[in-house]
Nucleic acid binder design. Structure first.
Lengths: 336, 336
DNA sequence: TTGTATGCGTTATCAT
DNA sequence: ATGATAACGCATACAA
């Protein structure tokens, strides 16, 4: 079934049928009704290949996800999927490894798929500065800010990572912790780790008695958290009374490690995570964490991209974080 | 850049260029070399819309995922993605809710996308029996078996759910548990729950002193596990010494619930999960579970589908499960 | 082995 | 408001 058949069946011409199908103005009500009736009846669907070939673009939205085993991204993808499904833009998901260049990948996909817009889940300023200029379609960077990059067609939705990390450390300090270890990613390759580390430094600088005892870097995974915590314990023993993990998966790995060493959380060592994964609230102990609001981030990035496709200017949104206090941090008395 | 430009640049005709690009025989080595050199040089890519339009199909593989918040499916999708990326079949992911009809959805997508093959993650025999006959392309049902459905173009990759559940219960019985509760899905709508329940029954039937104290049904989620366990405790108190949860997320929710009631796992109540999610090994206690081998399932379903696309007959594979014993089950003395 | 011509289903430009 | 017609980029049957 093609629009040709539709033309034959309805008695109208190809042109009119096409106009009806695309909700164009110059069509009589009568034509619209008769044709749409047949469409409904026959369950007709436009052939997207022909349409895209003609229009020289694919009408689809590309999502580039940087990092496969990222729970936070998995949640975001799920929610983005749900929101885009309400429109009629098909979604093209593309996963790349953490160390691949997301902008090169986007350029490749632009050539191949000619999408109307791009969503980046994760990314590095460096890569954007180098090559994003070649990308013509609107894009939204999620998780990092792109405000300072100055591309007219690049928006962003992010958390204030510096402030969020700072508030996590500040909370630990308020609870009396003075010897703190941090677990995160390599600051030279992970921009987010760099920002969160910066937040840690700023918090700690405000009190001369508090020290960042160690900073262990690793992949953002359960195993990574476990291994890093092992190194922390090897190096500092129980001198450290609190750990800030830059992701909940790291925190969970770390807690398991702490327990395997015969220590308890939070009685012996307190732990704060980052992300707010659902499983954190069902962990033993419930994880105190800096929650990122994935639902807001998802709906915001989709909304901004759809607006941009319709011609709206780029925007840079900061989604508020929430320090979610549960059970994995204990107050300690400061022995002055 | 189109094959027209390629023809111009190489001095050959459109036809020859097309033949080279499609690895067809009747082409001279010289033509192949010169043309491919230009392709490499210019980074030329065929326009998939034109190609698909011409060939009347999309060359893509559709994946229909039934149930959004399913960790196991999320893992499978990730691994399927990785394996299909090695080929040049684009992947079209489609998520539907648990109560939607996956076969109707597939029919719709076949009309719309004209894929060369379909992967079903989850599904119900009933739906397949009713409408799968209309589907012409090869498909693989993952997670359920389709051996008895008798469709020539439908393969399946599944775990033996009856045996797996039975072995979980048997293990609990071996450890001395006689009063067991089960948490899972509604057997009338979830085929998998039905099979696993059947496995439970068969295990328990073999020993007259062991009883299935309660079967609580719920959604497969952390919250669902928590709520179900709450009902178990309300009804049976601590009469029950062990719980079999039909998914790790249910098990984790249940454990948290048990602890919130001042009881300990496994000292007061033992818990066995199902799936083998990574987080289970980092939970407190480490989760004893029936592990499904997602990597094997993923590579198997992709391999079977690719073979079927190349004309191979359908296959029905059972991937072995592994009872993974960790810390969430305790041996109890039977007081005879 | 190579070249030429036709059509896939659609949109868009031009008449009418 | 409607109809005719030319492209879009490619594969393929046929001619050379």
């Amino acid at each position: 079934m093609t629009i040709k058949d539709l033309a034959r069946l309805s008695g109208y011409s190809l042109g009119t049928v096409s106009r009806v199908l695309n909700n164009q103005p110059n069509v009589s009500e009568k034509a619209r009704e008769t044709i749409m009736a047949i469409v409904k009846e026959a369950g007709f669907e436009l052939n997207s290949n022909a349409k895209n070939l003609k229009q020289q673009r694919s009408n689809s939205i590309v999502v580039i996800v940087k990092g496969r085993a990222n729970e936070l991204f998995a949640q975001l993808v799920e929610q983005i999927q749900a929101r885009v499904a309400e429109t009629d833009y098909p979604l093209i998901l593309h996963y790349i490894d953490e160390d691949e260049n997301e902008v090169h990948c986007a350029l490749q996909l632009c050539r191949e798929k000619k999408p109307v817009g791009i969503l980046f889940l994760g990314g590095t300023s460096e890569n954007f500065l180098a090559d994003f200029g070649e990308i013509q379609v609107p894009a939204v960077l999620v998780t990092n800010t792109a405000a300072s990059l100055g591309f007219a067609n690049l928006s962003s939705v992010s958390t204030d990572d510096v402030a969020a990390a700072r508030s996590a450390i500040s909370y630990l300090m308020e609870q009396g912790h003075r010897e703190i270890a941090v677990i995160g990613g390599d600051c030279t390759v992970s921009e987010i780790s760099h920002l969160r580390y910066e937040g840690c430094i700023r918090a700690i600088r405000r009190d001369s008695e508090t020290a960042l005892r160690s900073y262990e870097t690793t992949r953002f995974s359960l195993q990574g958290g476990y291994a890093s915590m092992e190194r922390v314990l090897d190096t500092c023993g129980t001198q450290v009374t609190a750990v800030f993990a830059m992701a909940d998966v790291l925190a969970i790995g770390a807690i398991r490690c702490i327990c395997d060493h015969g220590l308890r959380v939070p009685e012996d060592i307190s732990v704060v995570g980052f992300d707010g994964l659902p499983v954190g609230q069902f962990y033993m102990p419930k994880l105190t964490t800096v929650r990122q609001q994935t639902d807001e981030m998802a709906s915001a990035c989709v909304r901004i991209l759809l607006d941009a496709i319709d011609g709206a200017p780029s925007r840079h949104l900061t989604v508020p974080y929430v320090l979610t206090i549960y059970e994995s941090v204990k107050q300690v008395e400061t022995l002055k």
